[in-house]
Nucleic acid binder design. Structure first.
Lengths: 239, 239
DNA sequence: TCAAAAGTGTTGTATGTACACCCATGG
DNA sequence: CCATGGGTGTACATACAACACTTTTGA
């Protein structure tokens, strides 16, 4: 648009990478694919691929997710752009600029490999590394971003099925933040935040087989939380 | 990396766009350039340009800023990636994926046009629109992002000279948020946040010519604020 | 009747807000 | 001596953390 020198049109490849997260059995998991080709053949990586000429990065992200992991038309898929990684040496073969996304899923179906992915699998977050390319860093950035989003938005409901209990919602916070929370206080904060959750009239469900049946809630539709639900203080770092 | 079909290498142009903000005389300003070429010739736009083959987007952003506005090696320039805009139709000529940045400056020097920019100028934020391309949206996203960053990081000091008074710091918050703040409470919050600011021993400066000389502070080096400095409640939106 | 999970109540402390008030300087 | 901006004190309301307690279910 500006700066029409002769290097301007040097070809760039533009790709997307997805950090797809879910909470399974109280633990944070990430969706990985095993690479079928060099470089990094046989290594695990985030799903992703090339953006095609007529599609936006967001569209490409959904398409690649479907192609490589079989997760197509997943209900409740929440996609959000993370940032763009553009260091010249991040891909050993050529100049690749990658737009990274985070995606959140409730109650995840089993994925299956496809396209260039030899296989696809849910992997516990803590056992995911090391990954191919600079995906360790992308994954860490995604985790940090999602943790922060939970404080200020109703995003946690994107990890939950359409109707969920407050206990399940709390598990999401605990899994992402890696901290136990006080149940009574958590419950009060959530209910005191307008638009965070909406009760499902009369409905109840047993959670672990035992215990009192819990009331069910739906996402309340609020984009931002007032007041925010702040995580317990990671103490001030020294100056 | 995955998906080696023949459309994969279709050429994309990758550009950067910069939303450079500053606070002048208590009001938020943005750095704009007048376009010298079609499309949108004569219209105002955010500075920016093509990423070159051997540089990262961050490097390109600094280079373009220097070329188009003469702001080179500005002390205290804070650059931060905003997001990437990739809609296929955002540039009428060709497929352009643009990585947008926010940049903050204290006490800004006068810019001068250069490269493809006919001229460059600081423009009050409220009078900046309409801009070329999708730059209205990028500018709005940048404003929103900076407003949020002020709550949780020491970013506001990036708008201030190396040594500043608490009154100047407060003006930054008020200009970006568009809200007046209570001075005594603002002062206490800032001083109660470890690592936000550090006093300059014994130093003082007159602010508006009149009034008591104010103590001087330097950035305290803390990346994140504990506790955060939340903006006055934009009230809960209806569900 | 016990364990497990949901849900309610209470209390001390911290925090935020809205002010009133004093201090130092230039005109 | 007044206007202007810096700086301190205080009182009220609210919010939050911690923990005791009750309720309802399956085994």
């Amino acid at each position: 648009m500006r700066g029409y020198d002769k290097h301007a049109y040097e070809p760039f490849a533009v790709t997307v990478d997805l950090a797809v997260l879910t909470v399974r059995a109280g633990a944070l998991h990430v969706l990985l694919v095993e690479r079928g080709q060099e470089p990094y053949a046989g290594r695990w990586a985030l799903p992703g691929g090339f953006v095609q000429p007529a599609e936006s990065a967001e569209t490409a992200a959904r398409r690649e997710l479907a192609e490589e992991t079989g997760l197509a038309d997943v209900s409740g898929l929440h996609l959000e752009q993370l940032r763009t990684y553009s260091e010249p040496e991040r891909d050993p073969r050529m100049r690749v600029v990658s737009v990274a996304f985070t995606a959140l899923l409730p109650d995840p179906p089993e994925p299956h490999g496809g396209g260039d992915a030899a296989q696809a699998r849910w992997v516990p977050y803590d056992g995911a590394r090391p990954l191919a390319f600079d995906h360790d860093r992308i994954l860490a950035d995604a985790h940090e971003r999602v943790g922060a989003r939970l404080e200020h938005t109703g995003l946690a409901t994107a990890f939950c099925p359409p109707e969920f209990t407050l206990g399940e919602l709390q598990q999401v916070y605990e899994a992402v933040w890696g901290t136990p929370l006080d149940r009574p206080n958590f419950r009060r904060k959530v209910l005191a935040t307008p638009g965070f959750v909406a009760p499902v009239a009369g409905a109840a469900r047993l959670t672990g087989g035992r215990g009192k049946p819990a009331a069910l809630y739906r996402p309340g539709g609020a984009a931002v939380l007032h007041p925010p639900l702040l995580r317990p203080s990671r103490e001030g770092r020294p100056a």
